[in-house]
Design a binder for these strands. Sequence first.
DNA 1: AAGGGCCGAATTGTATACAATTATGCGGAA
DNA 2: TTCCGCATAATTGTATACAATTCGGCCCTT
Lengths: 218, 218
Amino acid sequence: MVKKPRQWAADEAYRHIRRRIFRGELAPGDSLIEQDLAAEIGVSRTPVRAALHRLETEGLVYASGNRRAMVREFAEAEVDECFELRALLESYAAGRAATAITPAGLAELKDLSTQMEAVVAEGGEEAPVKFATLNDQFHDGILWHCGSQRLRDLIKPLVQVQLVLMQRFRPHIEMHLQRSCWHHREIIAALEARDPAWAETQMRTHLLSAKNPAVDGA
Amino acid sequence: MVKKPRQWAADEAYRHIRRRIFRGELAPGDSLIEQDLAAEIGVSRTPVRAALHRLETEGLVYASGNRRAMVREFAEAEVDECFELRALLESYAAGRAATAITPAGLAELKDLSTQMEAVVAEGGEEAPVKFATLNDQFHDGILWHCGSQRLRDLIKPLVQVQLVLMQRFRPHIEMHLQRSCWHHREIIAALEARDPAWAETQMRTHLLSAKNPAVDGA
DNA sequence: AAGGGCCGAATTGTATACAATTATGCGGAA
DNA sequence: TTCCGCATAATTGTATACAATTCGGCCCTT
């Protein structure tokens, strides 16, 4: 039953390349040669090409016309840019979610919030990673309930790229988990109150705080 | 020297499929069978597949996993949604452009504005089409000068989809070309004055006016 | 020595054959 | 009749060969 020769070669290629970019083994500016990658992964060029396309749409890879694909080069300024664009879009989304979210949706968000607080209380080495996963789910949950798939699609690549950027430029940034938990509570409260303006400004505060995480006493 | 047998099959496939979607020959929900399209265009499946990927990232085509690609179905409500998202993003872009734009950039915008006014003054059957082309260049010009390639990439698909949506749901909408020209002048003035807030609100006005074009006396 | 054009190598673009997956329609059982 | 399962057809996924393009260096000219 070792019969999983390669059911999703394109997906495997995608994950493989993405992982190598995240780890920094493929540095920005490096050429991504289809044949080399194919040999390395053990598939043909076809799924590699599909993976590169996908990575390009997600903004991790740059390819112009017929020229070879390269790992996209990022400037540190783009970290802040991503935060600002996320603040713009996600605050708008939060405002819409305030009128559109269902009780079930609110329950999900509360559950995630509780889990995050538990992670923070527990602490430990793995806390930041666990927290980040739950945090992504929290933000994505709000996007699900804002009633606009298109808006959600706009934000997705921003989050994606931000992961690379943060790791490259600010790898050891302090997360201020406790402060984030408070923000999440505020956001949930605003959504529960069906107050778009409040939700919007809370979300903006939350994201722009992450941009400037150097406040004392948080 | 008839030597252009098929140098850019993928691009040709892309344009072909896109045109058929725009014309409504491929209706929303229709399956896009790679082999049929390939035979019709006269290329192999490979470039057709690339074209479909591209159309998918632009939001005109929907494809989930390995299932067949379909022409994306649009709801009329998405017309307004696109306008609102464009208003959100382009007003932000205009605000940034107010401080980032170069004199040369301003000159370009003024030139486009002048051309648009000439088209309106001239009138004729082709005026709306000519105007739309120049109008797109105007909006894209501002995005070029806002200093954020990422922001520009976010807006591009919105404009793209909007073209399909408008044609499908509001094909004979009145353009209010004269009013748009005034808006453009206002926007240019705001950029020239290096006033972000002014540029931002003028752009928002411009786009939300297009959303509700039923005002009298424009 | 600097610059431009040409040739070979590296790489991507396209076509096609085949494998894997998904969809469809039929037949049988409840 | 309705629903489930299975066989078969339709379609997409992958591999590979070949064509076209781009890249890089060398040589020739100035």
